[in-house]
Computed example of a mutant assay.
Amino acid sequence: MSPLQVAVGVVKNSLGEVLISLRHDKLHQGGLWEFPGGKVEAEETVGQALARELKEELDITVQAAMPLITINHQYPDLAVQLCVFTVESYSGTVKSCEGQPFLWVNPDDLVNYAFPVANRPIIAAVRLPPYYAILDDADPTLLLVNLDGILENGIKLIQARLKTLSADAVKSFLEQAYPLCKTYKASLLLNSSVKQAEGCEVNGLHLTSVDLLACRQRPDGKQWVGASCHNREELRHAEKIGVDFVVLAPVLATPTHPDAEILGWDHFAELTAQINLPVYALGGLTQSDLLVAREAGAQGIAGIRAFLG
């Protein structure tokens, strides 16, 4: 039997808050919070269903919607496919047309509300930004300069990939970098190849593909856990242990890895469609590739040089 296809809208207001509503107790997964939307009817596109549902539920008219993530989930009694869109452009004033209580919530506060299990990756996707900068230590003298530039460019998610620094240099850098990121309200993740950073304050961990496959469960005590993936096996394992997002690479050829086997956008889209996680595209990309990446199912763009200009 085909899964129940559902169009879901992450509706945002001018403050960046997200609308959530409480499911009626008598419905499937009743009593839990949800993002507005509903079943895609026969001979109706997902976009048409989204517009109809938001008009019926909230009395708003969608003017533009951007694909965010697609989730395939098997409940004990029901298979669902959630086609999720971000809706920031709409006309009308939100009101509850069907009597459901609703709230405007800061994205980072969504984790404090009880949602159906299938919604967990959606919450991660809502909270994650469109760009993920990888701060490389190829030239250690430029680390803080490059970090400053990345932050000044408005990037809110940064990975410190410090593979060549000494333990003392790593700690010295992180002691400066973390407060700086905090000032800019950006999250700093440390690459798992860095083994000498005990006690250093960061916002999370980014697992190399080798460390990912060695993990039997999600690392404890991390606000964010990301992972590097290159194939279906690694993606499936990332989903199994419960990471928050993955980076899938290489999408296109890169100067640093000219002999690497590239995925291309078609294969990237095929792999992304099989995973219930936000996926950043990496490899030969710039910020201007964001729309292409999102059309292929990506959360956004990751890169080393893409955010330094």
Rank of each mutant, 00 (worst) to 15 (best):
Y131F: 15
H73D: 04
T272Q: 13
Q74F: 07
T183I: 11
V11L: 10
L213I: 14
R232Y: 13
G309E: 13
R52I: 15
Q74S: 12
D109R: 10
D220F: 12
H230P: 07
A133Y: 07
A118K: 08
H230I: 04
V10Y: 01
P116Q: 03
E41Y: 11
L207R: 06
D109T: 07
I304R: 00
G31E: 12
Y113M: 03
G199A: 00
I301G: 08
S228T: 10
R305F: 01
A306K: 04
A197W: 05
A293G: 09
N191T: 14
I304G: 04
G92Q: 04
H206P: 08
G16L: 04
Q287N: 11
S2F: 11
T141C: 09
D289Q: 05
D139I: 03
F245K: 10
V105W: 01
N146E: 11
G226P: 00
K185M: 04
G99R: 00
R216Q: 15
N231L: 08
I150N: 02
C181T: 06
E175V: 09
L207Y: 06
L82T: 02
F245S: 10
P36K: 05
Q176Y: 01
S89D: 15
V247S: 15
A160D: 00
E98W: 05
V194N: 03
K185Q: 15
K26L: 09
N276Q: 06
N106I: 09
T164H: 11
V202T: 05
A253C: 05
V62Y: 07
T286S: 13
V292K: 13
F307Y: 11
E34D: 05
P255V: 15
Q74G: 09
L282M: 01
E261Y: 07
A273C: 12
V170D: 03
I301R: 08
V80F: 00
L58N: 01
L190H: 05
W104L: 02
F307W: 08
P255H: 12
N191Y: 07
E239K: 02
M66S: 14
P67S: 02
